[in-house]
C-alpha cells in the first residue's frame, strides 16, 4: 500500500512559469523515500502541495488512500513535516513550543518529553528556541514533526546548514524512527550522497519533471548498466578503428578511448587485437559510475 500517491501533478506560478510538469510519484508505506533534485527543481513546491500549503491547480494527491482535498484535517493528523527552514517560536522554550502544539494535536503530554529525549534536547530547560544553534533548531523541528506519532514524515532538506556530525545524527535518528516505529519518511535533498545511505526509494526531479523513480536497488542496476571501459594506447586513432571493427562505438575523452559496458571476454579479445596490430596498450580499466554521476546524468539530460 502507498502512503502517498501523486498523479499528473501540474503547477504554474505564472502562465509562462511551469514549476511542476505532470509529476507522478508513489511512496510505499514503510519506505524512506529520497526526493532528489537540484535547487529550483520543484521539490519544495511538490512537498508544499502535499501539505496543502499551496493551492493545487491540476492533478491528484492521495495520502493513506484518501484524496487530500476532502480529507485534509484527517490526513494532517497523521503527517509530521518540516519544510525548509525551522518553524519555531523564538521567544518560547523547546518544551513550550511542543506544549502549544500538543494542545492542538491532543496527543498525550508524555510525548513532549519523549520527543525531546529522542532528539537530544531534553537538557535545554529555560533556553529560548531563538537562542538555539541551527542544529538544535533542526532537531527541535523534527521533534515537533514527531510529537503526535505521525505515520508519514515529510522533511524538506532537514540537514541544510548542519555540520557532518549533525547530518549523521539526523540520519541515524531517521533510520531508527523508520525501523522501530515504521514511520514512512519522505526526505528531499539536492545531494544524493547525503541520503544515499538512508533511503530505500528514490525519486529524481529536475526542471519540474520526474526523471527517475524506483528503489535504490533499481538505481544501482542503472549504475551497473553504466559501467564503461577506458583504454589508452600509443596510437588511439588506429586503436579506435580496430575497436570499431568489432561493432563497438568507442569515443575519445581527454585523450583516452571510452567504451560502453562490455564483457570481460570482449576486453581480452580487443586487447589481443591491439597488440597483434603492433600497438602498445598502456591502460585498460573498467569504470563504475557512482550514484552521484548517475544523478548528475539525470540532471544534465
Amino acid at each position: 500500500m502507498s502512503s502517498l500517491q501523486i498523479t499528473n501533478l501540474v503547477h504554474h506560478f505564472s502562465a509562462n512559469d511551469m514549476v511542476l510538469d505532470n509529476i507522478n510519484l508513489e511512496v510505499p508505506e514503510g519506505s524512506i523515500y529520497g526526493f532528489l533534485g537540484p535547487n529550483g527543481a520543484g521539490k519544495t513546491t511538490t512537498l508544499k502541495l502535499i501539505l496543502g500549503l499551496l493551492k493545487k491547480q491540476q492533478g491528484t494527491i492521495t495520502l493513506f488512500g484518501k484524496p487530500l482535498e476532502k480529507n485534509h484535517i484527517d490526513i494532517l493528523k497523521r503527517v509530521g513535516s518540516l519544510i525548509e527552514s525551522p518553524s519555531l517560536y523564538g521567544h518560547l522554550t523547546a518544551h513550550e513550543n511542543l506544549n502549544l502544539l500538543q494542545k492542538v494535536y491532543q496527543c498525550p503530554k508524555t510525548n513532549i518529553q519523549e520527543v525531546l529525549d529522542l532528539v537530544g534536547l531534553a537538557h535545554t530547560g529555560k533556553k529560548k528556541a531563538g537562542q538555539f544553534s541551527l542544529g538544535m533548531k533542526q532537531r527541535l523541528s523534527i521533534a515537533i514533526a514527531l510529537l503526535h506519532d505521525p505515520s508519514l514524515l515529510i522533511l524538506d532538506e532537514p540537514t541544510n546548514g548542519l555540520d557532518p556530525n549533525g547530518m549523521i545524527e539526523i540520519r541515524e535518528l531517521l533510520l531508527k524512527l523508520n525501523k522501530e516505529k515504521g514511520i514512512t519518511i519522505i526526505i528531499s535533498s539536492h545531494l544524493l550522497a547525503e541520503i544515499e545511505r538512508l533511503v530505500t526509494h528514490i525519486g529524481i526531479i529536475n526542471k519540474g519533471k520526474l526523471m527517475f523513480e524506483g528503489t535504490l536497488g533499481e538505481l544501482r542496476e542503472k549504475q551497473q548498466q553504466l559501467l564503461s571501459v577506458i583504454l589508452e594506447t600509443d596510437d588511439n586513432e588506429k586503436a579506435t578503428r580496430i575497436i570499431a571493427d568489432n561493432d563497438l562505438t568507442p569515443c575519445m575523452e581527454e585523450g583516452r578511448i571510452v567504451l560502453p559496458a562490455i564483457s570481460k571476454d570482449t576486453v581480452a579479445k580487443i586487447n589481443r587485437q591491439l597488440v597483434a596490430n603492433g600497438l602498445e596498450v598502456y591502460e585498460i580499466k573498467a569504470v563504475r559510475n557512482d550514484l552521484e554521476a548517475i544523478f548528475m546524468d539525470f540532471i544534465k539530460n
Partner: peptide, 18 residues
C-alpha cells in the same frame, strides 16, 4: 505578526485545523 516573525505560518497551516 507572531507567525510572520517566527516563520511559523507554514507550521500553523500544516496542523489539523481548518
Amino acid at each position: 505578526q507572531i507567525e510572520y516573525r517566527n516563520n511559523t505560518w507554514k507550521q500553523l497551516h500544516t496542523l489539523p485545523l481548518n
